[in-house]
Amino acid sequence: MTDPMRIRAVAKDGKVDVRVLMSHEMETGQRKDSKGVIVPAWHIQTVTATYAGRTVLSAQWGPSVSKNPFLNFRFLGGKPGEKVSITWTDNRGEKRTDDAAITAG
């Protein structure tokens, strides 16, 4: 079970500023546990942000993005009350989508 993302989308000056905090281990695959066994890589691979049916940002991530990743981007348009949706998938095939309503800045 994955934890929800924290998403803040604020409309200001004709743009929407989106800040996302995801909950993910982002294990690099470089680290060894106490027995000296390598902890397998486990990280988010793709992130997609959509607004009004169109993709406003898509990303591919490697394991070197920090644990509990933070992401900030801005797109044109968007009014308070409308929804922004973020989806990630990780290398174990886990997938999570969360929505947030745009708020006035």
């Binding site: 940002l57 990743p69 933070f70 992401l71 797109f75 044109l76």
Partner: peptide, 8 residues
């Protein structure tokens, strides 16, 4: 339509 800006 998306700013050429990212922060992570």
């Amino acid at each position: 339509g998306t700013d050429p800006f990212v922060s992570t």
